[in-house]
């Protein structure tokens, strides 16, 4: 579904991605793990065309979307819950969800709304509250729900566990699994929380200094001693 080949991205003269190859097949959950500054978020942003890649190719389905403007990429069926959640703080929960549906057909709006309210019942309770008054976990749920409102085929999640309590992280990851299994949405997940991410994911990639250094099924990577040493020891 998503195929990335030899992707290079620069910020000015800094090369953030140094030739990334990666593939996400339909129906999968794929996790990308790596340390701070490895280029994880840059990869997600490059998929969305912000910034555009300097070299290499991003293919989505049959289309080469490498040079497409962002809004066309989103309209093609990719949605992103950006890093740091970035919900619209002064707008109500319902308005946030409405903004998520910008590129979707309006006739699906009500059924999509019911769908995300079933996934996140708390959002239904809070629907008329300002986004900025939600707790961190609720904001993350809103960010995911907002991304789902565009009926994506591929959902990109940038650090959904960032700054959340362990209980909430568990809840969020359970919903991601539900979205994948029941709603048949392919998920590409960027995480620092390697343990949770790899347990959830079918497959994983490890990104180090802008290069993919390792790949395998989630279980393989979890069992790998190098990964354990680099990303799992001490934390969990």
């Amino acid at each position: 579904m998503l195929r990335i080949e030899g992707l290079h991205t620069f910020y000015g003269s800094i090369e953030a991605l140094r030739g990334v190859d990666l593939e996400v097949s339909s129906g999968e959950i794929v996790a990308l793990i790596g340390a701070n500054g490895a280029g994880k978020s840059t990869l997600l942003m490059t998929i969305c065309g912000q910034p555009h890649a300097a070299r290499g190719q991003v293919r989505f389905g049959d289309d080469d979307i490498t040079r497409w403007p962002t809004h066309e990429i989103i309209a093609a069926g990719i949605a992103q819950a950006p890093e740091g959640r970035r919900i619209f703080a002064r707008m109500s929960v319902l308005e946030n969800l409405l903004m998520g549906a910008t590129s979707a057909d309006p006739q699906h709006f009500e059924s999509d709304l019911t769908r995300v309210f079933t996934l996140f019942p708390i959002l239904k309770e809070r629907r008329d509250q300002r986004g900025g008054t939600l707790s961190g976990g609720e904001q993350q749920m809103l960010a995911i729900a907002r991304a789902l409102m565009s009926r994506p085929r591929l959902l990109l999640l940038d650090e959904p566990s960032l700054g959340l309590a362990p209980m909430v992280v568990k809840q969020i990851f359970r919903v991601i699994q539900e979205i994948n299994e029941q709603q048949r949405v392919t998920v590409f997940l960027v995480e620092q929380n390697a343990f949770h991410a790899l347990r959830l994911a079918h497959r994983g990639y490890v990104l180090v200094n802008g290069r993919v250094t390792m790949t395998g099924t989630g279980r393989e990577l979890l069992a790998n001693p190098d990964i354990r040493a680099a990303y799992l020891e001490g934390g969990h």
Partner: peptide, 23 residues
């Protein structure tokens, strides 16, 4: 209307707007 709501969303967060496919 969508365009008015997009204005307000743009005021709140431009990057989020881009990620939602607003031009």
């Amino acid at each position: 209307l969508p365009v008015g709501r997009a204005w307000e969303a743009l005021r709140e967060d431009e990057i989020a707007c881009r990620s939602l496919g607003i031009n």
